[in-house]
Design a protein around this nucleic acid. Structure first.
Lengths: 339, 339
DNA sequence: CTGAAAGCGCTTACAG
DNA sequence: CTGAAAGCGCTTACAG
């Protein structure tokens, strides 16, 4: 694959590569280069099908025009969609995205940071794994432009884009209460993530305020063994308290696997037990009954994260960090509820 | 973000950067550098937390150690999973993946090729859009290492990794016939993709060989307006031939939307109408009945694509192209069928 | 055993 | 109006 460089064009036209660079980058201000030469260069560039070497440019100007995206689990639909939208917004701004996957493993996260750093990314968007504060602090210390998405550490001064986890969980649980549920369970991860805890706390506070909170109705499952664990948890929950008539699932994967487990146990969902799920899933539209869920504004999250990151990259000023909170939406599918 | 370069290490130790480069790259053969200096350099590198600049190296050696992945539709679960696995295999081999999305649009595909070319990718993995042969021929002419996945143009000499579309579709349709279906419909895209046509042909040949083929039972839907179109198509199909007792869906997205449309029409799936889907979907495990589907070996596809591409990149020899065909699996979930 | 030099493809002051 | 030169961070023949 023979590449055409600036020099090729310069040589063919008998000018210097500096001149060609200037013209091709539109930096030919105040008649720096004559109009005819300018036209000649432009024509020659299209004739030879010139494509600039972004790497060389990056080396010279110290910016790679690429960003790193470190995602916890690419096989998760939510993260997949997020990654897609981040790519689209990045491309629209002339940036490339390099994606890395951590599988919620902190060593993988450290490795990915190094990998991306070696590739000169101009900044990072990260969904941090548990206990990764020291890695983030290290980035901060080195002034690496950084935005956390989906998750954050509230005691750290880092830019972040989050949703209103507490509020939306409070509202969703209230919705279950309004539907008449008296024994509402919460199924969540056994993990110390701020955003997950917020969801749990929002739900619990809603229950408390209605005077129906029961600590025994909180069930924790493990992330790495979710599929088996959740069936076990659901069965335990139902055995311990057969009066359970509502369940709030705190995440995407817990929701879908929780629904599977309920069906396996021949529970008549939305009749015996009302549920409330996190994130949309194709499966919900296929079930013979309707499933209410919390819809995250994924596109908006992506848009804000990219904007926040590029802002940091392109203005040197390291002002105080911004924490953007977007509102999630409660989708009840009411029209189908009462059919 | 102050970067540590080879020169930093060289200066601190009073040696040349050439020496440092040699040692750090493990190219210190036959005692080129003394053991003590070697150790000093290694120690200093870890002390200063040296991370090599992959871009500079790429510029020098003419290889970026990155590959481009051009996907038709990242929001499609199948492609999402494929992208994930390709990333994993690429990383394991020291390569970065830059992903681009075409939305099945040929102009986007052309743009992405240019975008990735400017970023000096060493090769491309592509799921080509319709009528993109000229773009691929152009790449071939320039000796760009290239592998097509999921789709191909059988009359072009290009490397590809495919599944046995014809055979698996034939088998799947036979399965419907074996279950007693006499009026089997095929729902497929109105598109000229070889792999989709193979699926349709496999199904039709199975019907012909059983003497129950009826051309009126083939329904074509449009890609860009799938959700509306499919409901319309299903209704048309059922009206035209109320005896339909089996449907073969030729893709992932047609399957999931087809199932939705059937449910919307109060069809009792697997009782009134048996179905056969392409690709796995969470939703299938949630339905009160079982759904048989064709499972593609996504990991294997990814693995073979990466291996084929890296082989081309690293050996200059441009031998004839390889066309790998992997076997898909028919998942019947038999244990649940008869419950 | 080790260093000086050239060069990958670009951009950007500087000098005319 | 335009060119020569330096340099981004590397690697690789070449010379000693």
């Amino acid at each position: 694959m023979k590449r055409v460089s600036l020099k090729t064009i310069a040589n063919e036209l008998g000018v210097s590569s500096a001149t060609v660079s200037l013209v091709l980058n539109g930096k030919n201000i105040n008649g720096r280069v004559s109009n005819e030469m300018s036209k000649k260069i432009l024509d020659k560039a299209t004739e030879l099908n010139y494509v600039p070497n972004t790497l060389a440019k990056g080396l010279k100007v110290g910016k790679s025009k690429s960003i790193g995206l470190i995602i916890a689990d690419v096989s998760n639909l939510f993260f997949g969609a997020l990654a897609l939208h981040i790519q689209n917004y990045a491309h629209a701004n002339g940036y490339t995205v390099l994606i890395g996957n951590t599988n919620e493993n902190i060593n993988e996260m450290e490795h990915m940071i190094k990998f991306l750093y070696a590739r000169q990314v101009d900044g990072l968007i990260i969904t941090p794994t548990e206990n990764s504060q020291h890695l983030l602090n290290n980035l901060k210390k080195n002034n690496v432009p950084l935005v956390l998405v989906d998750r954050c550490f509230p005691d750290m001064e880092v830019n972040s884009v989050m949703i209103n986890n507490y509020d939306i969980s409070y509202q969703s649980t209230e919705e279950l209460i309004n539907k008449g549920c008296k024994n509402i369970a919460i199924v969540t991860y056994r993990q110390d993530h701020y955003h997950i805890n917020e969801r749990r706390n929002g739900a619990i506070d809603a229950l408390k305020n209605s005077g129906i909170n029961d600590e025994n109705n909180v069930e924790e499952v493990s992330y790495h063994n979710l599929k088996d664990d959740i069936t076990f948890s659901i069965e335990k929950l139902l055995k311990r308290n057969p009066k359970i008539d509502g369940i709030f699932f705190t995440t995407n994967s817990i929701s879908i696997n929780g629904v599977k487990a309920l069906i396996k146990n021949k529970i008549n969902i939305q009749k015996d037990i009302q549920i409330m799920c996190f994130d949309e899933n194709d499966a919900f539209y296929i079930l013979p009954y309707t499933v209410p869920f919390i819809k995250q504004p994924i596109k908006e999250i992506a848009k804000n994260a990219i904007e926040l990151l590029i802002e940091q990259i392109e203005s040197k000023s390291i002002d105080e960090s911004k924490n953007i909170v977007l509102k999630a939406e409660l989708v009840l599918n009411e029209t189908r509820v009462h059919q």
